[in-house]
Design a protein around this nucleic acid. Structure first.
Length: 455
RNA sequence: GUGGGUGUAGCUCAGUUGGUUAGAGCAUCGGAUUGUGGUUCCGAGGGUCGAGGGUUCGAAUCCCUUCAUCCACCCCA
């Protein structure tokens, strides 16, 4: 009979057990950090009614969304966690307490061509604060500081949180008299780092039909950081000529100042006027975080302020600020940069019990006793050759193997083999337990813990 | 959606101008060693050379088609 070829679709990640355990450790670390900042966990369905997910409509979303029908239902897989949040908040606004601080970690789906660092199914970790009617700007500084803490908690050091403000850009473009082209200009400016100044300049003059003098003036402001100038200083020269600009600049100054108070060192923050983000719902502060050594992976974290999150679902005005971490990308960066090397000792259990008697009773009782002492224990119950049993422990990197046979039972001891050193001793239960526990304690079974303040 | 590269064992890849029975490393399994793993040694299994068609005495190799995959663009986490 012909077998179906087992395969995993391109762009869908599937990990072997050891790497999966590491991935889960990463996620656990993030959850802990989010909790520190008083965010509450949330989960929403993977599948939603298509009209709900596509309420915003148009563009890439519609092209990339996985959409299907089941009977008469028109359904779609969520392509981010922000739209489901908007629906959730609009739907349950009456029962929620605002400001609503939630985090959500889950899979999202995008039907685009897979590439390095680009998946069709990937995990996002979102944190958002949603206000009722109003939301203080302090949140716009706290959110990126959480990102900083998360990344440091994972052991990452070489990353930069780029901050910008859309009001500053739109205001600036209005001052230059190209307000109606602001959106298109932002899109082009966003490419600066990728295609370079000359190409952006030619796009601006040739495609967007800006005056060459306008274009170069705009660029000189936007790229002033590269020429060693202080962007804030450069920008303040334009103060007083456009209300939106003035508001944006004040916001930007406040956010940058508060971020420092929230504990983000200047080395990890950068006012970058080139980031604009194509996403429509950002109205103020925007963030983008990239790894210094990995430009090819692109952004692993981005977000910003939106004034009207749930406008497609409700009359209620619900402003918010949020950020989204691309966990699947983040995981590959952690692996590639060797941050997980320290935890390669990860094993699913601390002790493997090899029963040497026909009666499994004593082994089961031993397993129970060890588990009651907090050890992760597994009984090898398969009828294999002895060497195969030890090889099993070896392959899974289980640090201790316990033998329980006639000799041990007779003398009321257990034999413990330390798989790292090869040393083996027979000792009474309590003695053996201490031995194992000390051994386990010296192993690293978590992600490296680095406190943000220990620079 | 547009453009380019690559498809040979479970994985990473060799394979000469087209020429006998398609190879290596790793992995797997067996043995050396039936109450002792990792190292070593010996051995074994595993392939419709992505698929279909064509040229040829002869195709993994050349041509066409198709599928898959990777990269770049678009867009994005």
């Amino acid at each position: 009979m012909d077998k179906v070829t087992p395969r995993t679709l391109s762009g869908f990640m599937e990990l072997l057990p050891e790497r999966q355990a590491l991935f889960d450790l990463m996620v656990a670390k993030l959850r802990d950090t989010f909790s520190l900042y008083a965010f509450t966990p949330l989960d929403t369905p993977l599948i939603e009614a298509s009209d709900v997910l596509l309420a915003k409509g148009g563009g890439e979303t519609e092209k990339q969304i996985y959409r299907f029908t089941k009977g008469d239902s028109d359904l779609s897989l969520r392509f981010d966690l922000t739209v489901p949040l908007a629906k959730y908040v609009a739907l349950h606004a009456g029962q929620l307490t605002f400001p609503f601080r939630r985090y959500q970690i889950g899979k999202v789906f995008r039907g685009e061509r897979a590439q390095r660092g680009r998946f069709r199914e990937f995990y996002q970790a979102d944190i958002d604060v949603v206000g009722d009617g109003a939301l203080d700007i302090i949140n716009e500084a706290e959110i990126p500081s959480i990102i900083y803490r998360c990344f440091r908690a994972l052991g990452l050091e070489k990353f930069v949180i780029r901050v910008n403000n859309r009001k500053v850009l739109t205001g600036l473009f209005a001052i230059f008299g190209i307000g109606e082209k602001a959106h298109a200009v932002m899109q082009v400016v966003d490419k600066l780092e990728k295609i370079g100044e000359d190409k952006v300049l030619s796009l601006m003059t040739n495609e967007l039909l800006l005056e060459p003098s306008q274009a170069s003036q705009i660029l000189s402001v936007i790229t002033c950081h590269d020429s060693g100038e202080d962007p804030l200083l450069k920008l303040s020269a334009f103060r007083g000529r456009n209300d939106t600009f003035d508001t944006g600049l004040s916001e930007l100054e406040t956010v940058l100042r508060l971020m420092a108070d929230f504990g983000v060192p200047a080395s990890h923050v950068r006012l970058d006027l080139t980031i604009a983000r194509g996403l429509d719902y950002y109205t103020g502060t925007v963030y983008e975080t990239t790894m210094s050594g990995h430009p090819e992976i692109g952004s692993i974290c981005s977000g910003g302020r939106y004034d009207d999150l749930a406008g497609y679902y409700t009359e209620k005005k619900l402003p918010g600020v949020g950020i989204s971490i691309g966990l699947t990308r983040l995981f590959f960066i952690l692996e590639n940069q060797g941050y997980l090397n320290d935890v390669l000792l990860f094993a699913p259990s601390d002790v493997l019990i090899l029963p040497m008697t026909g009666d499994m009773g004593p082994s089961v009782a031993l397993a129970t006793a060890l588990r009651e002492n907090g050890l992760r224990v597994q009984i090898y119950s398969e009828n294999k050759k002895f060497k195969a049993k030890l090889a099993y422990a070896d392959k899974l990197k289980i640090p201790f193997v316990v033998f329980l046979g006639e000799d041990e039972l007779k003398n009321n001891v257990i034999s413990v083999k330390d798989m790292t050193t090869g040393a083996q001793v027979s000792a009474p239960f309590e003695d053996a337990l201490t031995r194992i526990k000390t051994g386990i304690a010296s192993r690293c079974n978590g992600l490296p813990i680095k406190e943000p303040n220990q620079e």
